[in-house]
Design a binder for these strands. Structure first.
Lengths: 148, 148
DNA sequence: TATTTAGTCAATTGATTTTATCGACTAATA
DNA sequence: TATTAGTCGATAAAATCAATTGACTAAATA
């Protein structure tokens, strides 16, 4: 039940862009160093996220990536699905990539995996990058005052 | 956020043993054919589950595997952890394999993954193989009456 | 006690996925 | 037209996963 590195990097990258929103584009390089993600790998991830409609980009000097919508309109579910596919733990309970099992006697388990899927989806569908950005800003602020 | 094949096979195997409980041991071969799991792969899985304390075994004729406890005492969480390790989507929110992140600015996400972890754990900790066996029996019964 | 049955164990292979890198290309700006 | 920065496809390296193998040990029974 683990999240892929790709999924984790993607969500960190979008969070970084959300923290910067609505200022202009950010370079791959800057996102990479801020979030400690291998630059050439991040490049691919950002491309996928762009194709998935989460990001837009601008070439040339003063170019970079920026969110295609307000952070409050981008859910974590959308980002994770774009990177890793269905949220379901196994295909037979995936809404998107549904697969019929050959035997009915597994269905005692099917019900369980469906419950897991729904519960994960519920959280990720209802969390936006605005929520995450706010949490992050708040945590940073608290950390600052703590140090005084 | 996918379950490994190993985790899926393991839960199916334990379910099969729970359905057979408390009758005597079942051969690897029988579990394998009932649940359609590659026999030599299942062998390894059963060994791990034995080491994890879910199963016991008996060698020789009339031998096989059987549950070490009542199905109501074996949770799905226990089985999945034995096969795949921590339930947490990423290590920094794992109770067992906790890892400190080098940067505090990820914590906006940390909180989210923790919520996911807790929600998955809540379900898997509270589902036992008695529950699953009962569900399965009920589903089979319904399927039978449907056919009349 | 010999034979058969059935689980034990370690090592290794094969396949797939994940993670990452490379180089050449295109678009935008100054 | 030089420089900056994203685009794209191919591929390589590494890790993990899934599965196979062969030799071994223990138990039952004939």
């Amino acid at each position: 039940m683990r999240l892929s590195t790709k999924g984790e990097y993607a969500s960190r990258a979008i969070l970084e862009l959300a923290l910067h929103y609505p200022k202009g584009p950010l370079h791959i390089r800057d996102i990479s160093s801020a979030q400690d993600i291998p630059e050439r790998f991040l490049e691919q991830i950002l491309l996928s996220l762009k194709r998935a409609g989460c990001l837009k980009s601008k070439k040339g000097p003063q170019g970079g990536y920026y969110l295609s919508r307000d952070p409050s309109e981008i859910t974590v579910a959308e980002v994770i699905r774009a990177m890793d596919g269905p949220l379901a733990p196994i295909d037979c309970v995936s809404v998107i990539a549904h697969e019929v099992c050959s035997r009915e006697n597994y269905c005692g388990l099917k019900w369980l995996w469906k419950e897991v899927r729904d519960s994960v989806a519920e959280i990720l569908e209802n969390t936006t990058f605005m929520d995450l950005a706010e949490r992050t800003k708040k945590a940073r602020k608290e950390r600052k005052t703590e140090k005084l």
